[in-house]
Simulated assay, not measured.
Amino acid sequence: MVWFRAVGRMFCSTAQSGAAPGSASRWEKMKTSKAGVWCRSLLSDYREACRETVVGAWERPLKTSLYASLLGSAWICFYTKPDRSLFEAALLERSNQLALLSPWVRNATSDSHVQSLMKLRNEGRLRCASLGLLSVIYRADFDPDVTLYEARCSNLSTPWRELPQRVLDIGFAGHWWILDSKMNDYDVNEEEFKFLPAYMQATSPPSVQEVGKNQNLHKDSWLPLTMEEEKAHAVEMKRS
């Protein structure tokens, strides 16, 4: 048994001593090959670029903060960019808000804008294009499932230069700006006030003096009445 162990150790040591130069030479060949030289130069360039970035950020903190703020803002805008599903959800919500109001109370601008968008949605003519930091909703001429020749022929398709005329809304930072602006005062029908006198059609905010006067009157209204005390004082004055 001892003899077998000695022979095994001798073979193992011989194999290791023979494999070491081969592996070392193979590693040297890989380092000196074209791929090895290219990888080493690439790592060296990346290391130098990272070192220069750190040194530049340390020497110019204001410029670095500005660039970091711009990159962070761009990332936030890209992350919060709404898509078509969010536009349809916002459109249905605005439509429900208008449906809860009487036709005599709805704002004509809000109602006509939402109704036109709902008509295009039901016809399948709404399209959404992603432009990096923002999304654009525009109208198309046909539904994507239409098989008419005018809808399938590429020569009759709408050119890109007409896209600004077809834009319906712009999505940026999680909001649809045109839809939100059209819904301002959606429950105020301006047609109701066109027959009023001019001085009653427009209202101005109250001044500071008027606000203070109204507040004082409101506070005085909560004070207890003193009519009985005044009458008693008047009777005493008469008796005297």
Rank of each mutant, 00 (worst) to 15 (best):
S25K: 12
L71V: 02
S95Y: 04
M10D: 03
G18N: 11
S95R: 01
F11G: 05
T109G: 03
E59Y: 06
W75D: 10
A90D: 14
K81L: 03
L92R: 05
C12L: 15
D45M: 11
G18V: 06
W75K: 15
M10G: 10
R40V: 00
E48N: 06
N107A: 04
W58C: 11
F87G: 02
W38T: 13
G18Q: 12
F11E: 07
A108N: 08
C77H: 10
Q97I: 07
E28I: 07
L62H: 06
C12V: 14
R26V: 11
G56W: 05
G18H: 09
Y46Q: 08
Y67P: 00
S44Y: 01
L100Y: 01
I76D: 04
G56D: 08
T14H: 05
A49V: 06
R51V: 07
C39V: 09
R51E: 09
P21S: 03
T32H: 11
A89L: 11
A89P: 00
Y79P: 01
E88R: 05
A89N: 04
G36D: 05
R47M: 04
L86Y: 07
Q16D: 06
A99E: 14
T32A: 14
A74F: 00
R94I: 01
Q16P: 00
G56C: 04
S110G: 01
A35N: 05
S95V: 00
A57V: 01
L42N: 12
R40E: 07
E59P: 00
R26S: 10
W38S: 14
T32V: 02
L98Q: 07
S102F: 00
K29C: 10
V55G: 00
W27F: 04
T32R: 13
P103M: 02
L101C: 03
A15S: 10
P21W: 01
P103K: 01
A74Y: 02
N96K: 07
M30A: 15
L62A: 13
S23N: 06
K31C: 03
R106G: 05
L86D: 11
L91G: 05
L71Q: 12
A90C: 09
W75F: 12
S69C: 10
